[in-house]
């Protein structure tokens, strides 16, 4: 009974009044009697983002930060469909953030810090990027014992075709039907790489495991359940590779998409000024010496030295794959490729 009661309590705490979108974590930073409270809705895992919040609170003692984690599609649901009040929305799904701006859900933020950003790192003064994070392939070194580490998608396809028994059921990627970031990476891959659809075919035959998020994929990779995780956030993998020496990070040599993590201020924000200050803080990324690894900041120039690095550009073109018909077609094709094993 007590356990049931506790579970009910937690459930109540998580599904706050009237919220029908699914949240993964909630944490409140700062005192209950704080002067102001900044409500942040984010796709970034708490462990990744905690250092930022703590560092920001060191500078602003009298504020509390209410940090809610949800998947990018749930974030969209909360802001776009339900218009739940948040002061700041941080998401890796650039396309969904762009749609929020295009459809008039956001207010402007223009400051000395945002003006320092290169033009490609902001759109309409509403979608403001503060990190650039590549999509990488993470491998288990143990699973690849005796095999060459693939450097590109075509090499990976060849390897998987040669050793289907070794990798059957041990390949993981995003379920792009539920993960906004997974959908963004997949659609960009389909634009930029000829190997994307063949790769999905191969994944399908190997009974690919579908995940909600990068963190879970890396967890399973480290635990040995997975041998290959495709389109994982490089920034997350880098943080884990130090602790787990059995994984290798591959930046595909053919095409590597680079996602810009963006922050936006909804129109119905209660504390837009404070939210703006937090965005400026994120741009500067000044975590101080004690607080661990930050996410890769926006550099002065986009990484273009390597032709394979393809930063995803902010702009209305991101709306193309959000088009109802286009999305429907894409998901149908994707499911057709990935789920053939299930179908059989």
């Amino acid at each position: 009974m007590r356990i049931t009661g506790l579970a009910a309590l937690i459930w109540c705490a998580l599904s706050l009044p009237g919220w029908s979108f699914e949240i993964e974590e909630v944490k409140r930073f700062g005192m209950d009697n704080a002067d102001v409270q900044l409500k942040v809705l984010s796709t970034a895992d708490l462990s990744v983002f905690e250092p930022y919040i703590i560092a920001f609170q060191l500078k602003n003692q009298r504020i509390a930060v209410d940090y809610t984690v949800a998947s990018s599609t749930e974030v969209m649901k909360a802001i776009f469909d339900e218009q739940i009040q948040f002061d700041l929305v941080i998401s890796s799904a650039m396309d969904l953030q762009t749609k929020l701006a295009n459809d008039g859900f956001l207010s402007d933020h223009n400051s000395e810090a945002t003006r320092r950003l290169p033009p490609w790192a902001r759109w309409r003064d509403q979608v403001i990027a503060f990190t650039q994070e590549p999509a990488v392939i993470v491998l288990s070194k143990k699973a690849f014992a005796g095999l060459p580490i693939p450097e590109s998608r075509s090499e990976l396809i060849a390897l998987l075709r040669e050793h289907p028994e070794r990798f059957k059921g041990r390949v993981g990627t995003y379920d792009i039907r539920t993960s906004g970031l997974g959908y963004l990476f997949a659609t960009q891959d389909s634009r930029n790489s000829e190997s994307f659809w063949p790769l999905m075919e191969v994944f399908g035959r190997l009974d690919v495991q579908l995940y909600c998020c990068s963190g879970a994929m890396i967890d399973d990779l480290i635990s040995g359940r997975l041998s290959i995780a495709y389109n994982v956030l490089g920034s997350y993998a880098e943080r884990r590779v130090a602790a787990a020496d059995n994984i290798a990070i591959v930046t595909p040599a053919d095409v590597t998409s680079v996602m810009l993590r963006t922050a936006v201020i909804p129109k119905n924000a209660n504390e837009p000024v404070l939210a703006g200050q937090f965005i400026d803080f994120l741009i500067d990324g000044d975590l101080g010496p004690e607080t661990g690894i930050g996410l890769p900041r926006i550099g002065i120039s986009q990484k273009t030295s390597d032709a394979a690095i393809r930063p995803i550009r902010l702009g209305p073109e991101l709306l193309v794959f959000l088009d109802r018909l286009r999305r429907q077609n894409f998901l149908a094709n994707w499911a057709g490729s990935v789920e053939q094993a299930i179908g059989q």
């Binding site: 634009r191 702009g315 209305p316 073109e317 709306l319 193309v320 088009d323 018909l325 286009r326 077609n329």
Partner: peptide
Amino acid sequence: ELPYAALS
């Protein structure tokens, strides 16, 4: 299939 270029 909405062309990418149409909006870009």
